[in-house]
Each structure stands twice: as structure tokens, then as C-alpha cells.
Design a protein around this nucleic acid. Structure first.
Length: 474
RNA sequence: GCGCCCUUCGUCUAUCGGUUAGGACGACAGCCUUUCACGUUGUAAAGACGGGUUCGACUCCCGUAGGGCGCGCCA
């Protein structure tokens, strides 16, 4: 029996959980869940300057909202610095690392010179084989990894295939800063090893790091985890994801009214596929997901397709469940908190009854909420331009004639109301639209809404009749 | 500049040497209809370019072009 699968998601808390990170987390999660493995969460906070607690919270909240759960507690990488130092010293002892006394200024000059001469920008190995006794006493040294200079480093990658990097192109990276704190590449290797990570799934922007990390694994005599570097997500214009495009935190997607399930489905189809399947459940994703079915080229973020998917999910979510989503969404919506405060049990009941008609017309929860606005409106309703025009073009009179008809209807249900209005239309020789549109205007203040008889029913006899009376003029 | 990677409809993708190159979003047109939607039917739309290999290339190889990523005492 093979050892259990352990994946990890390792974001750095320098900002929100952006969409690319969310997808990486989704893949790690799906892979682990599909194999009865575990997904660990590690916060890469070794950069004390830029890491913030707020970012950690945002990342945890984002993952939770997306429904991606991790096993065990989130691990702080910084908290493990002592262990990282220990490994750095072990490397030193093994002759796989050395002290470097170059100052940041000297390194800067080195880079500038290389750039001016159009040479590759790399550390020149000044202290690689130099006798430390010649070290300047005032400079606190860093520890650099003694990278192999000959041969090549190979990464067997599930998504990228076999990637070969010439060792001469990889310089001696710093693994321990002059202040004694470890750097990313060292910490990652030590943590992944100590945490028992078997599969690393992350963005291709880490491909070069994978090579350097592989060298460190080898230097320590540790086995190298299985690697998968997934292609990046670009903006609609093919360039880097910008704020305007999609480089937003997942909380922004929540505020735009997307359902977690829809976003998961959409994200899964970016860079991964299962034949022609477009719409599938998260359970199916977990069942179908394999590392080898990942693509290799970057994909562009397409809001139109996300909207379409989201609309599908909204339409297929049971009314009561959708109402819960809507209620949970309100605090994050513009003007939502105010509406939420006005949502008592009676209003919830109305929303629930209107939901079937509402959800057909919404691609996002923002639109769903907007569609429900007429339920919250108070008399006399304000009319938008189109509604006003309908009323002016004979609407007022039509309503005046309709009011007694509705008032005299038997029971206040969509069914009987529809029968009553249709009979009236026939007798008056009018097309149904000539009555429905004025009703819609009077009842909702707009020219679009769910089926008008459902609107009548949901509003209730008293409120509906009153709204009609408000607009009825001879 | 150096290294690595990528390139099928506008977009996401299927195809794993032999297909009329398929699906989805979007677009356009029709149908349905009390509005808006939903639904439904249909149309247009692709192998970057140039060489090979092969009986046969979107698929394999080489080159060109375009694009991406990386090259910090950041992660």
C-alpha cells in the first residue's frame, strides 16, 4: 500500500487570497480529497515586514467561504525559523553552504554591472571558496547555498513535463539572512519535508524555485516531493491580472454575488478539463481530478463565462437554500445591510415565495437582490423612466379599470388572478400586455419583473391593491 | 541580457498520427412569451508561420514569430 497523499497550500500573507491562489488551493484540495489524503495549510510569513494578521484572516476567510477545508491547524512558517536555522547550519557543516560577506551595496553594484554588460544577473561566487579569515569583521554574513555548478537539475513535473535547467544558470542563493532569519527557499524545503508533504501543487511562477529547492533536498539527502506547476491565470487582455480584471481577493467575488460552488466550477475549468464536461459538482471534480489532465498554457479570466455558470447555479439551487445564500450575502452587498435589517420573518416568507420567479432572472446575487427590491419598496413607489412611460401611455386608465376587477377576485392567488385579468382583457378587447405592463409598473416601479400574477400574489391583496390604486387615474 | 515554458474558434477547452477538428461561454438570427429572463433551434467562428518525418500531421522533430514566468538579505 502506498503512503497517504499529503498536499499543502502555502500562501504568503501579504495581501488577500487572489484568484490564482484560490485555484491553486482548489486543486490541492481536490487532489487530496479525491485520494483520501490531507491538505495542509501553511502561512509563509517569514517576511516580517510585509506579513500581516489581517492578510492571514483574509486568506482563511476566503478559503472557508470557498468551501476549501484544510487538515489540522494552519502552520506559521515563521514560527519554525529555529528549525530552518538548524538545517542551514547542517548544510554549512556538510560543506553545502558557506558564509558570504558581501554587503547589499556590493550585491547591488554586482547586479548593475552585469546588467550594463548584458550578462546574466547572478551572484558571482565571491565568497564561495574564499577563506572566511579574510572576512571583514564589521559585516554580518549571510549563509548561501553552495549550488552545483556543473550538470543540470531536472524537475519531473506533472503539468510541465520533464523540465531541465542547466546548473550554471542557478546561482548560490541566500538561505539565511544576515539577521539570522531563513529565506523562502530554505523554509519551504524544510517545512515540506518535515510536514510530510508528498505532492507540491503550485503556480508555474515557482518553477525556477523548484529547481533550487530540488538541489537543497538533494544536499540534505531528502526525497523530492512529486511536483506539479500549474499555468497562471491572466486577465481578459492576456496580460497580467490587474485589479480591474480579476486580481481581486475572493471576498470581492463574494461581494459581486457569485456562489462558491459556481466559482469552484469555473476555476476548475481554467487549466483543467475532463473531456467536454462544463458543469459538474464539486464531488465530481474531486472524483475526476488528476494531475495529468492539467493544461500547460496560461488561461484568461472570463467574467462572462463565470456569470453564465453562476446563473446556472442560482437557477438550480433550491429556493430555501438560495434564500440562505442571499441572506448571508446581504452584509457584503451595497445597501445590503440596510435591507437585511428590514428583513423580518414576514419578509423572508415573501422572498421565499418570490424566489422561484426571481432566480430565473438573476446571474448573480446582486441581481437577485435587485430583483427583490420591489418587495421592500414602500408606497407610493418611485417609478423608473420606462415604468412612468407605460403609465402615461394609457397605463393609468388601464389600472383604473382593472382595480375593481382584481378587488372582486375570489381568492388572491396567481391562478385566479390571472383568470380574472384574462377575462377582463378579452371583454375589453385588449392584449394581455396592455394590462400586464401597467400592472408591473404600478406594482414594482419598473418595466421588468417576474411573472406579474406571481408578483400580485406575493405582494398580497392589500398591498397590491393599494399600489394599483396609487397609479389608477381615469 | 540569460534560463525555462507556452501557442486549436473572440474566450475556456476536447483531440493523445487517419474526425466534415467536437463542446461550452460570448456574438448573431429564429422560436417561445405579459416584461425581463429562462428554455429551445440554427448560423458565423480555430490548428501563429516556415521547414521537415510519415502513406497520412493540430498531434512528432527543427527553426521563426508572438506571449508568459523566473533571475531580491520577497514569497
Amino acid at each position: 500500500m502506498s503512503s497517504p497523499i499529503i498536499t499543502r497550500f502555502a500562501p504568503s500573507p501579504t495581501g488577500f487570497l487572489h484568484i490564482g491562489g484560490a485555484r491553486t488551493a482548489l486543486f490541492n484540495w481536490a487532489f487530496a480529497r479525491g485520494r483520501k489524503g490531507k491538505m495542509l495549510l501553511r502561512i509563509e510569513d517569514t517576511d516580517r515586514e510585509r506579513s500581516t494578521d489581517a492578510a492571514v484572516t483574509a486568506i482563511l476567510d476566503g478559503l472557508t467561504w470557498l468551501g476549501l477545508t484544510w487538515d489540522g491547524d494552519a502552520v506559521s512558517q515563521y514560527a519554525r525559523a529555529e528549525r530552518h536555522r538548524e538545517v542551514a547550519n547542517e548544510l554549512l557543516k556538510r560543506g553545502k553552504a558557506y558564509h558570504c560577506y558581501c554587503t547589499p551595496q556590493e550585491l547591488e553594484a554586482m547586479r548593475a554591472k552585469a546588467e550594463a554588460e548584458k550578462r546574466p544577473i547572478r551572484y558571482d561566487g565571491t565568497w564561495r571558496d574564499r577563506d572566511p579569515s579574510s572576512a571583514p569583521a564589521v559585516v554580518k554574513p549571510v549563509i548561501r547555498f553552495k549550488a552545483p555548478q556543473q550538470g543540470e537539475t531536472v524537475i519531473e513535473d506533472h503539468a510541465q513535463g520533464r523540465v531541465v535547467i542547466p546548473n550554471k544558470d542557478l546561482d548560490d542563493l541566500i538561505i539565511l539572512r544576515s539577521d539570522g532569519n531563513p529565506t523562502y527557499n530554505l523554509s519551504v524545503v524544510v517545512d515540506d519535508h518535515d510536514m510530510g508533504v508528498t505532492h507540491i501543487i503550485r503556480g508555474v511562477d515557482h518553477l525556477t524555485n523548484a529547481a533550487r529547492q530540488t538541489q537543497i533536498y538533494l544536499a540534505m539527502g531528502w526525497s523530492v516531493p512529486d511536483m506539479t506547476h500549474v499555468p497562471l491565470i491572466h486577465g481578459p487582455d492576456g496580460a497580467k491580472l490587474s485589479k480591474r480584471h480579476g486580481a481581486l481577493g475572493v471576498e470581492a467575488y463574494r461581494a459581486m454575488g457569485y456562489l462558491p460552488a459556481a466559482l469552484r466550477n469555473y476555476l476548475a475549468r481554467l487549466g483543467w478539463s475532463h473531456g467536454d464536461d462544463e458543469i459538474f459538482s464539486t464531488e465530481q471534480l474531486v472524483e475526476w481530478f488528476t494531475l495529468d489532465s492539467l493544461g500547460k498554457s496560461a488561461s484568461r479570466f472570463d467574467f462572462a463565462k463565470l456569470e453564465n455558470l453562476n446563473g446556472h447555479y442560482i437557477r438550480h439551487t433550491p429556493d430555501a437554500e438560495l434564500l440562505r445564500h442571499l441572506l448571508a450575502f446581504m452584509p457584503h452587498a451595497e445597501g445590503g445591510p440596510d435591507l437585511l435589517a428590514r428583513t423580518d420573518d414576514a419578509m423572508k416568507a415573501k422572498l421565499l415565495r418570490a424566489m422561484a420567479g426571481l432566480k430565473e432572472r438573476a446571474k448573480t446575487l446582486v441581481e437577485l437582490l435587485k430583483g427583490a427590491a420591489f418587495l421592500y419598496a414602500s408606497r407610493p413607489l418611485s417609478m423608473d423612466d420606462k415604468a412612468r412611460q407605460i403609465l402615461v401611455d394609457g397605463g393609468h386608465a388601464a389600472l383604473a379599470a382593472l382595480h375593481p376587477v382584481l378587488a372582486g377576485a375570489g381568492d388572491w392567488t396567481a391562478h385566479t388572478l390571472e383568470a380574472a385579468v384574462k377575462t377582463h382583457a378579452e371583454q375589453a378587447g385588449l392584449k394581455l400586455g396592455k394590462l400586464a405592463q401597467p400592472l408591473r409598473a404600478a406594482l414594482t416601479g419598473t418595466s421588468t419583473s417576474p411573472g406579474i400574477f406571481d408578483v400580485l400574489e406575493v405582494l398580497g391583496r392589500d398591498e397590491a391593491l393599494a399600489r394599483i390604486a396609487d397609479q389608477a387615474k381615469p
